[in-house]
């Protein structure tokens, strides 16, 4: 798990630096999912940086596309893209746009508007089944993504089709753009909801590498149902002053604070 921690730490420090340089937002969303992304790319996804279009690769769609920088960091660490691309994130004539893009090697699908990832992943899961392929489809969602009607349309349909090759991971940090989720759209007990919709669900600590790996390497939880992993996370995990805050959704770390923030993240990882 040391590697997972290393990758997650780099995702956090990269995200802080990239958003600082760009003066762009969503650092809280990147940091809450950092540990899950690290485990996905280190332990779970069958993908090959030398052959990013390998037909039998696992598919991963980041439906919370605004947290793209976290995935870009993982892709750079794994060798899908050059490290220097990260330095020009969000810049004129750069390679990495603010919301995740399939123009980047290793990125399966572009998102940015919420509610798009799961329907497309459901179609990919159908196509994999039709092709009699063992490849798996993973989608990362968020509180806001779970507000979208289209997400729930796909939740209904994936269960109807018994798509056991489909796994939905919810980065459940319980904060969204304008408030804590319970004050905006209170999803309450998401496990009960998803189970009622016909999914096999496991709830984990989204910052515990063992729990993340154990859950994601056990899918499908039920051979007749799609799987959902509700990862309880903390918005902006790793920057104490911003953890579990609404402002971390749009915030970037200013120049005068950045070294202290990076130092804290790296020390926490020791």
């Amino acid at each position: 798990m040391e590697n997972c921690k290393k990758i997650a730490t780099r995702i956090r420090t990269d995200a802080v630096r990239m958003t600082n340089r760009a003066k762009s937002g969503h650092v809280g969303s990147m940091l809450s999912m950092a540990d899950i992304i690290a485990v996905l790319y280190e332990k779970i996804l069958k993908v090959d940086p030398k052959n990013p279009d390998m037909p039998e690769r696992d598919r991963f769609i980041l439906s919370k596309g605004h947290a793209a920088a976290g995935v870009y960091s993982a892709l750079a660490q794994k060798g899908f893209i050059p490290e220097e691309w990260l330095e020009r994130y969000y810049c004129d004539d750069g390679k990495l746009m603010g919301h995740i893009s399939h123009k980047v090697p290793g990125v399966e699908f572009s998102t940015g508007s919420l509610g798009h990832g799961l329907p497309v992943a459901t179609g990919m899961a159908i196509a994999a089944r039709y092709a009699k392929s063992d490849r798996r489809i993973f989608v990362m969602s968020s509180d806001g993504d779970m507000n979208e009607g289209s997400t729930w349309e796909a939740i209904l349909f994936a269960a109807q089709e018994h798509l056991s090759n489909l796994t939905l991971i919810i980065d459940y940090n319980q904060v969204q753009a304008l408030g804590h989720s319970e004050d905006v759209i209170d999803l309450r007990d998401l496990k009960v909801k998803l189970e009622a919709f016909g999914w096999a669900v496991r709830e984990i600590d989204g910052h515990n590498y063992e729990e993340i790996e154990s859950a994601l390497s056990s899918v499908p939880f039920d051979g007749n149902k799609p799987s959902a992993v509700i990862a309880n996370t903390i918005k902006c995990k790793g920057i104490p002053a911003l953890e579990d805050t609404v402002k971390s959704h749009y915030k970037f770390i200013p120049d005068e604070e950045i070294e202290a923030v990076i130092k804290h993240i790296e020390e926490e990882a020791k």
Partner: peptide
């Protein structure tokens, strides 16, 4: 095996169709 009725859900219809098409169909 190539026919899907997603229910009264046009957004999902289009997203699912896109996912199927992305895989060479």
């Amino acid at each position: 095996e190539r026919y899907y009725n997603v229910g009264v859900a046009e957004q999902n219809m289009t997203g699912v169709a896109c996912g199927i098409a992305m895989e060479g169909n």
